[in-house]
Design a binder for these strands. Structure first.
Lengths: 200, 200, 200, 200
DNA sequence: AATGAATGAGAGTTCATTCAT
DNA sequence: GATGAATGAACTCTCATTCAT
C-alpha cells in the first residue's frame, strides 16, 4: 500500500516536473535529463515510470485533459446554454491562471500547432480536442434550438469561431505575461460572441 | 550582374525548398539535408547562402511576411474601414490557398505557437506580427472613430478577437484538409465579427 | 541447518533459471532481471548469492562441468580404452539430450567460441576443458600404448581430432533441431575415429 | 572516379579496422568508437558507410566469405576429389595464417557459435556456410561415387565430420597462439580423415 | 534475508556544420 | 562557388548494481 502510494507520488512528481520543463522549453528542447533533474531523480528513474519521452508527454496531455474536462463537465447541468458557455469559459480561464504550464492546457484544449506534438500523438490530441468540442457543440446546439443563436451558421462553424475567440484571448494573455484577471475576460468574451463588434 | 542574379536565384530556390520542407516536417524534423535535396543542391551549398538552419527559417519568415504584408497593404487605401477588413481578410485567405506551405504563413502572421519558433526568433515573429497588428488596429481605430464599431472594447482587444476568428477559421480549414474556397469564408467571418452569434 | 539448506535451494534455483535464460539468450542478451524473474525471486536477491552476472555464469559453468565430469569419470574404470571412449561419448551425448541447455554444456566441455565467455573467464573454461582433455588423453595414451591406435600422431593431436568429431556432431545435431537419438551416434563416431572415411 | 575510389578505400579501411576490433573483442564488446578509432576516422564517419553496427558486422562476414570462397573455388577443377579436399584445406589454412582475424573466417566458414552473431544474422551465416558445405559435399560425393570413400555414411555426415576435424585443428591452433605452419597440418588432417586413428 | 525501485555510467546513433577538393 | 564526405557533440535509452525498507 505504502509502495503503491510512493510510486504514484513519484509518477506525479515526474509529471509535474515534465510539465514545467516542457512548458519552458517545448518538447524537442526538453531533455530527459532536464526532466529528471527538475523532478530530483536520476535520469534512469524516469524510465521506470514511462517508456520514453513521448509517453511522458502523452501522459501529461492525458492527465491535464482529464482534469480540465472534469471541471468543465460540472457546469453542463446548467439549464441555460448561454450560462453554460459563460461558466465553461470561466472555468477554463481559472484553470489557466492556477497552472503556470498553460501551454499544455492550451494544447490539450486543442488548437496547438507545435509540430512536435503533431508528430507525437496527433490522434490523442485530436481525441481530447474532440471531447471538448463535443461539449461545446452540444451547448451551442441547445442554444440554437432554443432560438438564442442564429441558425444560418452550422453548429460546427459556431464552435470553431467561439474557440477562436477563446484561444486568441489566451494567446494574448500569455503574450502579455499572464497578468492576473484572465477570468474576468470570460463574460465579455461571451458577450462579444453573441453581439459582435458592431456599434449598437 | 549575372552573378548577382544567379546568387539571388539560388537563394530563392533554397528558400522555396525550405518552405516546403519546413511546412511538411516542422522546424525540428526538417533536416538541412532534406532542404538541400529539395532544392537540388549539395548540403554545403546552403551554408554559402545562410549562416545556419535558424537563419534559413528566419529568412522564410521575413520573406513571406514581406510578401503578404505588401499584398494586404494595397487594400489599405480603401475608404471604408469595414471594406478594408473584408479585403485584407480575403487577401490573406487567397494567399493561403495559393501557397501550400500555409503553416509558415500562419506562423509568420502571428498566432503560431510552435515551440521551435519560440526558441528561434520570437523577436522577429513578434515584430512581424506587430506590423500586421498595427495595420489591423489602424483600420479598427478608423472604424471605431466613425462610429461603426462599439467603443467599449479597446482597439487592441478588438484586434485580438478579430485575429482569433481568422486564426480559428484557418486552423479549421487546415484540419479539414484545405478544401478549396477558403476565400469565400472571409465575408461571413467579418459579418460574424460585426454581429456575433445572437439570433436576430 | 535448515537455513543452510534453504540458501542452497535458492542458489540452485537461481542457477537453474540462469542456465535456462543463458541457454535461451546467450550471456549478453540475458538480463539479470530475466534470470531473477525466471527464478521467481527479486532482482536484488540474485546479488545475495552471486557477486555479479559473471559469477552467475561462472557458477553454472562450474556446476555443469562437475556434473558431466563425474558422470564421465564413472566409465574410466573400464579396462578397454576403446570401450572407455565409447562409453564417455555416449555419456556426454546422453547428458546433452537430457538437458535442454546444451549450449552451456557444450561450452563447459570446451570448444565454445562465444566471445562473451572468452572475456569472462577463459581461464576457468580452459581449466575445465583441460580436465576433460586430461581424461581423454589418458584414455588415448592407454590405447596407443596397447598398440590400438597409431603412434605417429601425438596424443594431444589425437585428442583434438576426437573432440573435433564430437563437437561437429553436436553442432550438427543442434543445427537440425536436437532430434532424439543423439546417443546412437556415439558408436559410429568412435568407429569413424578409428577407421576414417576411406572405402574398405 | 577519384571520389569513388576514395569512398571504396574508406569503406575497406573501416572494414579492416572493424575486423581487427571484432576479432579482438567480439561483437558486443566492440564499440563503434573503437572501430572508428582503429580506422582513424570520426565516430560519425562509420555511419556514412554502414547503417549501423550490425551492418558493419554483416559486411565483414560477406566480404570475408567471398574472399575465401573464391580462393577455394579455384581448386575445384582438380580431377581427383581427394586432391581437391587437400587443396581446399590448405587454402583455408593459408588464409587463416595470412589474416590475423581468424575469428571471422572461422565464423564465416561456418561452425561459429557466438551468440551475438546468432542474434544478428544467422540467416546470412547459414547461407554462407551452406555455400562452403555445398562445395565440400560435391567433392565428397564425387569421391564416394568413385569408390574412394565408404558409402555407409551419408554425404552430409561425412561433410560434418570433415569440418569437425578442420575446426578442431583451427581451434587448437588458435588456442596455442597461432604458431606458423598451420598449412602443414592440412595433409595429415586429410590423411586422418581417410584412415582414422587405428593402428595400421 | 528478500524486495524492487533508484541509480548513473555508457553506448549507439543523428545531424548541423565544416572543409578539402 | 559547388560539392559531399568528415566531423564530433549531444541525446535517448538500457541495465548491472546498490540500498533503503
Amino acid at each position: 500500500m505504502v509502495r503503491t502510494e510512493t510510486r504514484a507520488a513519484y509518477r506525479e512528481a515526474i509529471l509535474d516536473a515534465a510539465t514545467r520543463v516542457f512548458g519552458r522549453l517545448g518538447f524537442q528542447d526538453a531533455k530527459m535529463a532536464d526532466i529528471a533533474a527538475e523532478a530530483g531523480v536520476a535520469a534512469g528513474t524516469v524510465y521506470n515510470y514511462f517508456k520514453n519521452k513521448e509517453e511522458v508527454f502523452r501522459s501529461i496531455l492525458q492527465r491535464t485533459h482529464e482534469l480540465v474536462y472534469q471541471r468543465i463537465l460540472v457546469h453542463q447541468q446548467l439549464a441555460d446554454p448561454i450560462e453554460r458557455m459563460r461558466a465553461s469559459t470561466r472555468e477554463a480561464f481559472d484553470f489557466l491562471e492556477e497552472h503556470g504550464a498553460l501551454f499544455l492546457l492550451y494544447v490539450s484544449i486543442g488548437g496547438g500547432f507545435d509540430w512536435a506534438q503533431k508528430r507525437i500523438e496527433q490522434a490523442l490530441i485530436d481525441e481530447n480536442h474532440a471531447r471538448y468540442f463535443a461539449l461545446s457543440q452540444a451547448t451551442l446546439r441547445d442554444a440554437v434550438e432554443r432560438g438564442l443563436l442564429r441558425s444560418d451558421l452550422s453548429i460546427e462553424r459556431l464552435a470553431v469561431l467561439l474557440s477562436g475567440l477563446t484561444d486568441a484571448t489566451i494567446f494574448s494573455w500569455v503574450r502579455t505575461g499572464c497578468p492576473p484577471g484572465l477570468r474576468t475576460q470570460a463574460d465579455p468574451l461571451i458577450d462579444f460572441f453573441l453581439h459582435g463588434a458592431k456599434a449598437p
